[in-house]
Amino acid sequence: MKVEDFDMFSTMLKQRSGLVLSRDKAYLLESRLMPVARKWNMKGLDELAVAIRTRREEALLRDITEAMTTNESSFFRDQKPFDQFRDVVLPMMLAKRAARRSIRIWSAACSSGQEGYSLAIMLLEQGAKLDGWRFEIVGTDLSSEMVEKAKAGIYTQFEVQRGLPITQLVKYFKQVGDKWQINDKIRQMVTFREYNLLTDLTPLGQFDVVFCRNVLIYFDQPTKGKVLESIAKLMPTDGVLYLGGAETVLGITERFKPMDNQRGLYVVNQPAGAQAPRAAVG
């Protein structure tokens, strides 16, 4: 691939999705964009590059961005964060929201929806102790294709075997041909919408718990900081943020700090002086 073509693709991807593509990842462009080129009746990436320069057609740019952003997900991915949710975060939130009895959870960059559905399953498994509580789980992703897939809740045999115990497959899914669809009760607990993390997030509303796992790793430092600051604005002072195993807030933003003894969990940092009693207005 020509250097100027690589630079053009990577600049475009950075602007649209925050994705940072280093030169050694050029092979990813080849493998992921060939299907896009074929879909648009082009012979290869050279022709694709020409089309971007000359037409800048939104639908084409969108296809390229969606093809390049990683869409890996699985049910109960990494397991531990979900155990922490059940054992630490949920009990804490139940105590803090006892008056309101409602909790909002955001699965940011949700891909095909498994994280949100895993949380819904986990909540249902809690049984009667959550009676009278309202849980709203919102999943967002930059890719319209992923959002559609998440909404449909239909997964391949491979996907339902990654992380999902067989008893839960039997309990919460129905077989549709050679695929598996999550049942209506679970689907109604999660809403999905297309949303870009680099845009203004305030229309999404406030979230008590935010899952933003394995997203920041694709961004450069300033973009990580910007996204974390916009997430902080959506969270109450007692909110909890989840990051992926290879991610941290340290050295990136002061808006969050690690939760004591809970790896991967972060709490909102109170600005200095915010907790101090206000000086009397005199």
Binding site: I166, V170, K174, D178
Partner: peptide, 11 residues
């Protein structure tokens, strides 16, 4: 065997 009936029988 990948149908619900077999899975339930196994369980």
């Amino acid at each position: 065997e990948n149908d619900l009936a077999h899975i339930q029988e196994a369980l």
